[in-house]
Design a binder for these strands. Structure first.
Lengths: 353, 353
DNA sequence: AGTTAAAATGACAACGCTGTCAAACTGCAT
DNA sequence: ATGCAGTTTGACAGCGTTGTCATTTTAACT
């Protein structure tokens, strides 16, 4: 039942080491030998033992994914993207949900890395923004990739290998540009008083999205009014509260559109609008952000910015693998900056009269 | 930087094996020795090497979770429940999303098990219902726990250790009882023509929920009409289509309530009702199933049956661990049958006139 | 104190693979 | 043929634990 590398070696008439080379796709193996070994592998249905490989090798065949995000859709997409790459590379994925608030977080992550001797780590926001974690990873000398909100500001993409190993390990999502675009969409619909319901203030994405919204207003000669900005968090409840607060005495401000920091907030705003008997989009336009599945399951369906999370995380994994031992071929197809694209659905419409 | 068991042994003045015993919480270690070792462990910040333990031991310190479910909330809850137990036991979790349709599925799972030498497997529906997978697991002789829809029919819970290792490895969710209860709730509200929008026909949960619904009707002398049953799947879209089909010529049948096979279907029905200008719950009551977060994010909020997925999966993990090597204490607190409890919210109300 | 069983500890060889480094082969120019 | 550099292969020693089994210590009795 249990087939070892030794069995394969005997069967193919070569040494264990040669089989090992084939398994690991090392370059210096003659085609003939390669085929011979592969045939034996197939015939015996050999399965390399992960534990043994991890123990004997310099690093293990596992990477980690750490996250602290209440949004199940987001997390699943992230997992699946990374997982698909892991499958191709023959790696395992160790998932690690955690609590960004915990000041001991970086220690917990360090423990996990050491126990599993992870080959690398993918960090999602907001963990990817925490300096103490980054410092810890640098100290440990482990490869990692950060998912960040912002733009790739690499001075000039040099053809040289980057001097510092720390650089070139970020994947950016340009929330600024996407928020700008959505805001322009609303402005083009004739909206002049557009509110913004923020997500968690600590998240970089919040500031980026807010900045995009503000820039769009400025560029179109609309006043940026702090009273139109609600500071909440990325939850449905926060969306409900935000909309309620914003719309309470709406005679004065006359808000005709709300840009939600994410889909949950927008769905919450939708909910609040309904409570207040406000017709969407006739009386009020609401836009989400992220395009999570339920932005299609609200009534009406949400206009939002599509963020291809599973693609993003897949590229994060690619970038990570390009930094780990194999590192065979330079993966030139890695996209490092993603800009969510606007998806117009039914929750936004022309400004009333 | 790297601390081995040998270092700890020297530091504590005992043998490696004794340290190993302490790490693994084996019984025959004197308290004094135990403390001595633990102190050394703490002082040196020793982290057991998972790979080495996996290799040397009889089975690895990892269990698997396989699923094929499009519902992100469900999957995340399952993961978190199992993960919390893994953390306590010092195990790793290998997640494995897969496609139940694939006829080669069981081979893929077998490969994963062998590569990672998994100590056990938690199977969620519908994978847990597939005979080919079960057969494969039995053949491999690996411990596994199945999450199933139904009731625990163990003849009489004997105090003896079960004869066959195959028995006592299921966790049941009593969908029948929950569907019955929800249906009674609707009946008590005066509804006489209650429709049911099914999930995937192949899923056991679908038949169980349907049966519960039908029994409730019968027990209350209401006719069970197949025309009131829509065969869909567990998606939002299916809910939309189902409700549309059901309500199309509603003058004839006069449906006043729809029981959705899950929350997504119910949300879809809600959506369809809105399209058709039907007031919820004034003209039509709609109920969901599962109590996923977005049953609280619809308008109006969904009446549903609360299914504590993370608790359920945690117990599944417990049951699994009670079957793996450690198996130290008999975990007597494992619940093997869960009955979702009804949560009444705003989407159901008295039958019109 | 002396005996004996039980409990606690230790010595050492696996576990299945990869890194290191040396050996054997290859092709090519002499 | 001969030598040489480059390529391909192999021998063997770990990697850091745990299982086995032998040995020592303890406790519980005469």
């Amino acid at each position: 039942m249990k087939v070892t590398i030794n069995d394969v070696a005997k069967h193919a008439g070569v040494s264990m080491k040669t089989v090992s080379r084939v398994i690991n796709k090392e370059p210096s193996v003659r085609k003939k030998t390669y085929d011979l070994v592969m045939q034996a592998v197939t015939e015996l249905n050999y399965q390399p033992n992960t534990a043994a490989r991890n123990l004997a090798g310099t690093s293990s065949f596992a990477i980690g994914l750490v996250y602290d995000n209440p949004n199940a859709y987001y997390v699943i997409d992230m997992q699946n993207g990374v997982l698909s790459r892991c499958k191709d590379e023959g790696y395992e994925l160790v998932i690690h949900p955690c609590c960004a608030q915990d000041p001991e977080m970086h220690k917990e992550i360090a423990t996990m890395i050491q126990r599993s001797r992870l080959a690398g780590l993918v960090l999602t926001p907001p963990l990817s923004e925490q300096q103490d974690i980054i410092d810890m990873l640098d100290e440990l000398g482990i490869a990692y990739v950060r998912l960040l909100s912002g733009q790739d500001k690499t001075p000039e993409k040099s053809t040289e290998v980057p001097a510092s190993p720390k650089s070139n390990n970020c994947i950016y999502v340009d929330d600024y540009a996407a928020a700008y675009e959505i805001t322009v969409h609303l402005i083009n619909l004739g909206h002049k008083t557009i509110a913004f319901a923020c997500g968690d203030a600590e998240h970089k994405s919040t500031t980026e999205r807010l900045a995009g919204y503000q820039s769009a207003l400025k560029d179109h000669n609309l006043t940026v009014d702090d009273n139109l900005i609600y500071e909440g968090n990325y939850s449905f409840e926060s969306g409900v509260e935000g909309a309620k607060a914003l719309l309470k005495n709406n005679n004065a401000s006359n808000i005709t559109a709300i840009l939600g920091g994410n889909d949950e907030i927008a769905a919450g705003a939708l909910f609040a609008a309904r409570l207040m008997n406000i017709a969407i989009p006739e009386q009020l336009s609401i836009s989400g952000f992220e395009d999570s599945p339920f932005s299609r399951q609200t009534w009406p369906k949400l206009t939002t910015a599509h963020q291809a999370n599973s693609v993003i995380s897949e590229h994060a994994a690619r970038l990570l693998f390009s930094k780990t031992r194999g590192s065979r071929k330079q993966d030139k197809d890695i996209i490092t900056t993603f800009t969510p694209s606007i998806v117009i659905r039914e929750s936004t419409g022309p400004a009333p009269n």
